[in-house]
């Protein structure tokens, strides 16, 4: 079942070239989809459209069967959580517990429920010891974990990670990727927006955006096999894949090497 369906979506910022043109895609319930593209490919614009922070020029977005419009936007936001790129600019609360509570307060959860859920989800992202801490005492990775806890507590069906790891150091990045894996395993639909192929191969499906258009969309395996599209996408290829291509060109590859490189590409 498709939880998100996007049809012919177009959007442009004031008198500039189209940020998105005729984007059509869908996301199945419970899957993990990566939206992959270089800077300026329109991928972050897409996430803002899905959650109704921007209004499309034309086209349609359906979330869980409901068409996104001015009346439905608040209901749809209850179903989608989003973790943004800059850890500092999305930390609303004065302390960690306040920030985790923020979304629940907006959804009018009972106070006792909020208190329980703060404990539960802070535990999930290993931030229990930091509940009373203020944001300037936290690292970027810790702030992103707090943002994740806040969204998990709101029990949304879908979580979008909009380049959520791009401002973090390798350690922070790894921990966030691990939480994403866990979240998806627990049944939440996950959309990661990234320019990093290494992150994208972890997902079930990859959608590649280039200059506001979908140039490829398919299972991760199929996308990795699509040499032409990958070469035209301006993305950085994974090293094992590059090696595979070199071997192919020289007609040297054998099944054993191919299999090994494939496993390495998928980061397994």
């Amino acid at each position: 079942m498709n939880i998100i369906e996007i049809k012919d979506l177009s959007f442009s910022y004031q008198d500039e070239i189209d940020a998105l043109s005729n984007v059509t895609l869908s996301v199945k319930k419970g899957e993990w989809v990566s939206i992959l593209g270089h800077n300026g490919s329109g991928k972050s614009t897409l996430s803002k459209l899905i959650i109704g922070l921007l209004k499309a020029d034309s086209g349609e977005i359906k979330v869980d069967g409901v068409i996104l419009n001015e009346e439905s936007v608040h209901d749809i936001r209850r179903k989608i959580g989003i973790v943004f790129q800059n850890p500092d600019n999305q930390f609303v609360g004065v302390t960690v517990e306040d920030d985790i509570a923020f979304g629940m307060e907006n959804l009018c959860f009972e106070q006792s429920d909020i208190i329980d859920k703060i404990k539960e989800y802070a535990e999930k992202v290993s931030m229990s010891e930091y509940l009373k801490k203020e944001p300037h005492a936290l690292s970027g990775g810790q702030k992103q974990r707090v943002a994740i806890a806040g969204i998990l507590a709101m029990k949304t069906d879908i979580i979008i990670f909009d380049e959520a790891t791009s401002m973090l150091d390798p350690k922070g990045r790894e921990s966030i990727m691990n939480y994403i894996k866990e979240i998806n395993k627990a049944g939440v639909t996950v959309i990661t927006i990234t320019h990093d192929m290494k992150e994208a191969v972890l997902s079930d499906r990859i959608i590649i955006l280039k200059e506001g258009r979908v140039i490829a969309c398919g299972d991760t395996n199929d996308i990795l096999n699509d040499k032409e599209t990958l070469n035209s996408s301006n993305l950085e290829l994974l090293l094992p894949l590059k090696l595979q291509y070199l071997l192919d060109e020289a007609n040297l590859s054998n099944d054993k090497v191919k299999d090994i490189l494939w496993q390495l590409s998928l980061n397994k």
């Binding site: 270089h38 800077n39 320019h195 993305l235 950085e236």
Partner: peptide, 10 residues
């Protein structure tokens, strides 16, 4: 190079 895509970084 933080925050840039691979091409911008290179």
């Amino acid at each position: 190079t933080s925050g840039l895509d691979p091409k911008g970084r290179d």
